[in-house]
């Protein structure tokens, strides 16, 4: 319900990749000395969370929120990757400060190239949109959402997408999920 309404808003803004598209592969630094390739993550659902910048001034910021919800994502077997144009050293400092337990990828050089591939780059601002993609285990986009850049989209859309992706099996159904 929320998803459909939100998707209709996307027309006015960037055209992000829609459900059904195969997620373009990329390799980005996940640490100053480490590179992560998307296609190597196949086999489990992946959440790609593009966001404008590290060091957002609010304490309940999007990455901090997802950090708290990580256990719920993992119940669906899903991994979360945060992506912004910040450099790897910046990400490292930010992740340490906020005690983040998931990788932040640097879409740093060429700047914003991966964000552009996903239709999630704000050319006028020089940083990524606040855009979410849920990929299935085969690397196909199953849900995407573009949030107004100043509105943290929360995680309800992600969890609903993961739920629809993963037919409820005994391994994945906990009482808390059945009765949120």
């Amino acid at each position: 319900m929320a998803t459909q309404a939100n998707q209709s808003n996307q027309v006015e803004q960037s055209k992000i990749l829609a459900a059904g598209t195969t997620a373009p592969d990329f390799a980005l630094r996940s640490a100053p000395d480490k590179t992560m390739r998307l296609s190597e993550q196949r086999g489990r659902p992946i959440i790609l969370a593009f966001y404008p910048a590290d060091w957002s001034p609010v304490c309940g910021d999007q990455m901090a929120l997802y950090n708290e919800i990580l256990p719920d994502f993992r119940e669906y077997g899903a991994d979360l990757l945060g992506i912004s144009v910040d450099g790897a050293w910046c990400h490292a400092a930010f992740a340490r400060d906020r005690r983040l337990h998931f990788p932040l990828l640097s879409d740093f050089e060429p700047k914003g190239a991966v964000s552009r591939m996903y239709g999630a780059y704000r050319t006028q601002d020089g940083f990524s949109e606040r855009a979410l993609f849920v990929l299935d285990r085969d690397g196909v986009v199953r849900w995407s959402y573009l949030s107004p850049v100043n509105v943290n989209p929360g995680a309800d859309g992600i969890l609903n997408a993961l739920e629809s992706l993963t037919p409820r099996s005994p391994a994945f159904s906990t009482p808390a999920q059945v009765h949120p």
């Binding site: 929320a2 309940g60 719920d72 943290n152 929360g154 309800d156 969890l159 949120p180």
Partner: peptide
């Protein structure tokens, strides 16, 4: 407390306060 948190996540709580 955990139930409150999870219900909040499902409702689109996106930080505090929401």
């Amino acid at each position: 407390v955990r139930d409150d948190f999870r219900g909040g996540v499902r409702s689109g709580v996106n930080g505090t306060p929401t």
